[in-house]
Design a binder for these strands. Structure first.
Length: 428
RNA sequence: GGAAAGGUGGCUGAGUGGUCGAAAGCGCCGGACUCGAAAUCCGGUGUACGGUUCUCCGUACCGUGGGUUCGAAUCCCACCCUUUCCGCCA
């Protein structure tokens, strides 16, 4: 959510910066709502003030045993207008809130303009893609040849966009998550978190999934009106740790790492990445989340991105880092780096991590604050990034570490997590 | 799922429907005392929004949402949550 003060003071400027996404800000709608709000709110408060002092006088008069009939009728009359004007105010404020909740974040000044992924700018490229002296296979062929990937059975059990792994492949998947958690907790100073996979609407609103992106979520009905949502990323439960909290300054930065499954309906991506486990309804991810003072958040974004890159470096996977252009960024982000891993089977770099600074956008929705040097509550900045998407990392390993005989080498960094296993081969 | 108790400011904890945004204590901040500290004493100490604009003023907020009333932390209804006991359960 954007600061409503900013809209009041510089509507043109905000509209200009949002146009880069591109997003059309309806300035007229806002101004009309604001004008009305001001009028109605002022009147409401006047009437409330009058009611309060009148009620007070009635109380005092009664205390002295005086006649209060005249005062009572006066109060009764004023109440009629108050009631209607209060209802009107609630209605306008709700409209204003809806308006604000649907505005995306402002892109940071360092974000390149542009509308499509082609406008993203490569920041750095690390590692040399390996040369193969045999015909490379994609992860599906590699995994199925090993007899450890079974998409057909996954489809039988659940439907499209689910996967089933068995044996050493399932173990590799587990080892990856384990390895990532250990690097981040031991070397990068993150606190491990176990968090709920089902969250309420307030949490989804806090991080920005709601109200605009409900169709991307899986919902579980519960009770009469209520429902819970399956998390699309650990970002949601973990960031909401600080919702409605005022964090003491000395606790900052808060750094959390959390491994969860993620659930996404992938509505609107029909026909996209239908093969293999690139785009699934359910996938595992290790997520980094930080909460920090505003003046430090961009340094933190660089660090956090570096933490994600560490995993790829340790695994010996070639990758590049791109800064997303304004048009390719998510709704809540002010700046995002995508990390793309090299996939020989696709002969392309594919997203494996997305690291973003949300500035105060989420914090304002969540009322997530810290107590600054002056002792005043101030909105936090929130950041997060995948480090990494476990399923896609597994894909990258299958493709980059495949051997001519159909086996897959286990990256050295993972071997300690797999009882020293060096190669995954078909069981004979 | 059943029964009971309870949700008040950073914490503990009062609060006959009427100067209650809320006693008191603790904590915290400032000051006095002190060479310094402790103890003691004095003063201050919630959040959000709006108006004004840097000084104030107003409004709202006592789990959430409704209701009764001139007036609700206080009464009524619904819901949520917590604790304890029982049942069930990994």
């Amino acid at each position: 959510m954007l600061d409503i003060q900013l809209l009041r003071n510089d509507l043109e400027g905000v509209a200009g910066r949002l146009a880069a996404r591109p997003f059309h800000l309806d300035g007229m709608e806002f101004q009309v709502l604001e004008q009305e709000r001001k009028l109605v709110q002022t009147r409401t408060q006047e009437l409330q003030s009058a009611r309060n002092s009148l009620a007070k006088r009635i109380g005092q008069a009664k205390g002295k045993g005086e006649d209060v009939a005249a005062l009572m009728s006066e109060a009764g009359e004023a109440n009629a207008e108050l009631q209607s004007v209060e209802a009107k105010l609630l209605q306008i404020q709700a409209k204003l809130q809806d308006f604000l909740l649907l505005l995306p974040n402002l892109p940071h000044a360092s974000v390149p303009p542009g509308r499509s992924p082609e406008d993203n700018a490569e920041v750095r490229r690390i590692g040399e893609p390996r040369r193969f002296d045999f015909q490379v296979r994609d992860h599906v062929d590699v995994g199925e040849a090993l007899g450890m990937f079974d998409f057909a059975t996954a489809t039988k059990i659940s439907g499209a966009r689910f996967s089933l792994m068995t044996g050493q492949l399932a173990r590799l998947h587990r080892a990856l998550a384990q390895f990532m958690l250990e690097v981040h907790t031991r070397e990068h100073g993150y606190t491990e978190v176990y968090a709920p996979y089902l969250v309420n609407a307030a949490s989804m609103r806090g991080t920005g999934q709601l109200p605009k992106f409900e169709e991307d979520l899986f919902a579980v009905p519960r009770g009469e009106e209520g429902k819970l949502y399956l998390i699309p990323t650990a970002e949601v439960p973990v960031t909401n740790i600080v919702r409605d909290e005022i964090v003491p300054l000395e606790l900052l930065p808060l750094k959390f790492v959390c491994h969860t499954p993620c659930f996404r309906s992938e509505a609107g991506s029909y026909g996209k990445d239908t093969r293999g486990m690139i785009r699934q309804h359910q996938f595992d991810k290790v997520e980094l989340v930080q909460m920090i003072q505003p003046e430090k958040s961009y340094d933190c974004l660089e660090q956090l991105t570096g933490h994600a890159e560490t995993i790829l470096q340790r695994l010996g996977l070639p990758y590049r880092v791109v800064v997303l252009c304004a048009g390719d960024m998510g709704f809540a982000a002010a700046k995002t780096y995508d990390i793309e891993v090299w996939l020989p089977g696709q002969n392309a770099y594919r997203e494996i991590s997305s690291c973003s600074n949300f500035e105060a956008f989420q914090a304002r929705r969540m009322q997530a604050r810290f107590r600054n040097e002056k002792g005043k509550p101030e909105l936090l900045h929130t950041l997060n990034g995948s480090a990494l998407a476990v399923g896609r990392t597994l894909v990258a390993i299958l493709e980059n570490y495949q051997n001519a005989d159909g086996s897959v080498s286990v990256p050295a960094a993972l071997q300690p997590h797999m009882d020293g296993l060096e190669r995954i081969a078909r069981a004979s």
